[in-house]
Design a protein around this nucleic acid. Structure first.
Length: 270
DNA sequence: GAATGAACCTGGCGGC
DNA sequence: TGCCGCCAGGTTCATT
């Protein structure tokens, strides 16, 4: 289930194989992903040279002079660069054949991912209202404090709102709140400036560390080179409901917060 | 504007 | 062993 570190790991793994390469052809085996793949992808991408592989939030952008392919991995998507004759597996929905003789293959069992098109010089509407990147200077405690005033929703829901900050999903929200000692149930508008400073700092630290470790391997995530991520071994809260808190040893609580499974320590997180 | 909940899809897992 | 039903996940959209 790709979150920002997984998407960044994917981007970094793909870039050396794609940048400077020309797209020979596009094969759509199954165009009905989350949204239908628009005709521009198969009409305008062939023949184009990929000049950059970028990431914005959890979206990957493959830039060409004719426009950019915009890809979201959804919850189960993965991308691999493979020899052109590699046998197709179930759920291999899209192939981009490259002039290197290899193919960029998109596999997505649950089809929550998408492949869209962005015109040159434009910003796709899905990217327009996104919050700052969590590892940028624009994201800090002051940003969280200002945007949270008057909001009664749980701070975990607030932190996962992509308009507030991008790329923080269920796993890293749980981990950042644990590290900062903030209960996920606390109303976002009731968290102090000082505690938001701690939360922003922990979110940055955890995300940067997860990227360095190759993301989190949970069921579906595999990096483009086929290697699993190693961050899962270091999770303190996520997926550990009922197990001892790494700090105080008391059992971690588990409940739904904003429709999402949440784990926290009732003693260490207030 | 904010909060809430449904919907999308399917593999994995627990219970029977 | 096989079947059934629930759960998980990110994001959008509709409703309140």
């Amino acid at each position: 289930m790709p979150e920002l570190p997984e998407v960044e790991t994917t981007r970094a793994g793909l870039a050396p194989h794609l940048e400077g390469r020309r797209v020979r052809s596009v094969l759509l085996r199954r165009p009905d992903l989350r949204w239908p793949i628009p005709p521009e992808v198969s009409e305008r991408l062939p023949g184009q040279r990929i000049v950059a592989v970028r990431r914005r939030a959890k979206y990957l952008l493959f830039d060409t002079e004719a426009g950019s392919a915009l890809l979201h991995l959804g919850m189960s998507g993965s991308l691999r660069v493979l020899p052109a004759k590699t046998p197709v597996r179930e759920h291999d929905h899209v192939d981009l054949a490259l002039d290197s003789g290899r193919v960029l293959r998109f596999n997505d069992p649950r089809r929550f991912g998408c492949l869209l098109w962005q015109e040159p010089g434009e910003t796709h509407e899905l990217l327009r209202d996104l919050g700052p990147e969590p590892l940028s200077e624009a994201f800090d405690g002051e940003h969280l404090f200002e945007r949270s005033r008057g909001r009664s929703a749980p701070v975990k829901t607030f932190l996962m709102d992509q308009k507030i900050v991008v790329g923080v999903g269920n796993i890293y929200a749980a981990e950042a709140l644990f590290a900062a000692g903030i209960s996920p149930l606390r109303a976002a508008g009731k968290v102090s400036r000082e505690r938001y400073a701690a939360l922003a700092g922990e979110a940055k630290r955890i995300l940067a560390h997860a990227i360095a470790r190759g993301g989190t391997t949970l069921r579906d995530f595999i990096a483009p080179d086929g290697a699993p991520g190693y961050f899962e071994q270091e999770l303190s809260a996520y997926g550990r409901g009922g197990k001892p808190c790494p700090r105080c040893g008391r059992p971690l609580k588990q409940a739904m917060v904003g429709q999402r499974a949440s784990v926290w320590c009732g003693h260490c997180q207030r």
